[in-house]
Design a protein around this nucleic acid. Structure first.
Length: 462
RNA sequence: CGGGGCGUAGCUCAGCCUGGUAGAGCGCUAGCUUUGGGAGCUAGAAGCCGGAGGUUCGAAUCCUCUCGCCCCGACCA
């Protein structure tokens, strides 16, 4: 059979299609074309809720112990979280750069950590028998960059960060993505002339963490953490509250009700904010103080959570051995004081699910949801229903919409939609379409309402 | 790294004790019927039973070694 040439339409200018940074990051998408392998049953290896749901909802697949492939839907969430972290870092005055994953062992010998770090560090040898390692953190690299490029106190302060994959060869990876060996982390490093200035940097990061977790739809509690040999009170862990969290938190009730500062002036004095958040009793299980808790009475609450951030002032621990100094105002060299500030970006995906799910699946906070709305065509074979869906799909085009146009039964579609947890479901069936009505369902509350297609569009656009 | 467990179809698992050449449910493909909360029937496709060696006429099954994964503990973003 010969093919008739396809007739070409009239010449018209190329439609300027949006060019997203990541193709799965907020473009409208048809489920029939999307790579979303959902599972009805739970794979045997997954024990905790977030791991189970991440596998079932088609977010990730395990590659090896503690190492995962991010599938499109999971990758979209990861990127959204990463972007929020980035925006809040930038807002606080930190500057993004990108350091390598593979690092030279020589740098780590300078800081003395090459021998100290132990088996958690994945060591690699290249073809010239040079010792390399897959970075578990980046203090050495950033200190090296700093010392070879910054000469004067006038260049301080600086906070530099990157969002990069790390590897720690955990003895026992577990909890899916939450305790993997390979993980995505935001790590920032501050450089200051003295401890007072370092505290300002610390406070900036502290406040930006409050804002970051808040934007992610999480309730985070800062806990005073062990500072090791450095001492002082400049180290905090940020614990995100989740009923299924792995660690226990004891804290003052008021801490849970405290509101996160808005419109922060990061150049201003942040000490009052930090004081407010650190003034109330809060301790991890292993650090808690029964005597102090007794005085709290009813104000004491015990909750569960997941550590998602850790900020740390470490003075000259790396700058001294590695010779990171600048000329001070008097011309004399001053060893810079440093701090580091981590956020477990990939871990946050799991933490958010732990904090926000129900029996049917994930419930994404709006800010990180891979799509804003799931458009559910209940009867693909019905011309009117499909036409209505197409027009809604078109109308919602600038929203993040996932259109379930698969020829599946209603039940399967509802189950999948609940499982992947998009904030809104727009359900379109023949009965409603006949009356010009669709159903809008809120995933978090389960509330449904029948509304006209016009108001559905208006609601979802607003 | 100590202790325990598991590797059989894409997923969940049975079969192993007592050797005789591989099964179920779900999923997948096709057809018919269904169609608002994971449908029914029929017919299919799909597994060198994690790998290597050994015992045996014969091994998913017994023995040895090995690799992988999971759980508990110690350790960590």
């Amino acid at each position: 059979m010969t093919r008739t040439p396809v007739a070409r339409g009239p010449k018209r200018p190329l439609k300027s299609a949006p060019v997203p940074l990541f193709t799965n990051r907020g473009l409208p998408m048809r489920l029939s074309r999307y790579f979303l392998p959902t599972l009805k049953e739970t794979p045997a290896e997954a024990q905790i809720v977030s791991h189970r749901l991440m596998l079932r909802a088609g977010l990730v697949r395990q590659h090896a112990a503690g190492i995962y492939t991010w599938l499109p839907l999971g990758f979209a969430v990861l990127k959204r979280i990463e972007q929020i972290v980035r925006e809040e870092q930038n807002r606080a005055g930190a500057q993004e750069l990108l350091m390598p994953t593979i690092q030279s062992a020589d740098l780590w010998r300078e800081s003395g950590r090459y021998d100290d770090y132990g088996k958690e560090m994945l060591r690699i040898t290249d073809r010239h028998e040079r010792d390399l390692l897959y970075g578990p953190t980046a203090e050495e690299v950033i200190t090296d960059v700093f010392r070879s490029n910054v000469r004067s106190y006038k260049d301080l302060p600086k906070i530099l960060y990157h969002i990069q994959w790390k590897f720690r060869d955990e003895v026992r990876p577990r909890f899916g993505i939450m305790r993997g060996r390979e993980f995505l982390m935001k790590d920032a490093y501050s450089f200051d002339l003295d401890t007072a200035a370092a505290r300002r940097s610390y406070n900036q990061m502290f406040v930006s963490y409050l804002r970051t977790f808040d934007r992610l739809g999480l309730k985070a509690i800062p806990l005073r953490a062990d500072t090791g040999p450095i001492g002082g009170d400049l180290s905090h862990e940020f614990i995100v509250l989740a009923d299924t969290g792995e660690s226990e938190v004891h804290c003052h009730r008021s801490l849970l009700e405290m509101s996160v500062p808005e419109g922060v002036d990061y150049e201003g004095d942040l000490q009052p904010v930090v004081d407010a958040w650190t003034g109330l009793y809060a301790a991890a299980d292993e650090m808690h103080d029964a005597a102090q808790e007794a005085t709290l009475g009813d104000a004491l609450v015990t909750a569960r959570g997941i550590e998602v951030g850790h900020i740390f002032h470490f003075g000259t621990k790396y700058s001294a051995p590695m010779g990171a100094a600048v000329a001070g105002p008097d011309g004399e060299p001053v060893t810079v004081v440093m701090g580091s500030y981590g956020i477990g970006v990939s871990r946050l995906v799991g933490a958010i699910i732990e904090a926000s799910h129900d029996d049917n699946g994930i419930i994404w906070p709006e800010s990180v949801a891979p799509f804003h709305v799931g458009l559910v065509n209940l009867k693909v074979s019905d011309a009117a229903t499909s036409a209505a869906c197409e027009s809604l799909y078109e109308g919602l085009g600038r929203e993040r919409v996932l259109y379930d146009d698969r020829d599946e039964r209603a039940g399967a579609k509802f189950a999948d939609m609940d499982l992947i947890g998009l904030p809104w479901q727009l359900i379109v069936g023949p009965k409603g379409v006949a009356k010009g009505m669709v159903e809008l369902k809120n995933r978090a509350t389960g509330e449904r309402e029948d509304i006209s297609t016009e108001s559905a569009l208006a609601r979802l656009a607003g």
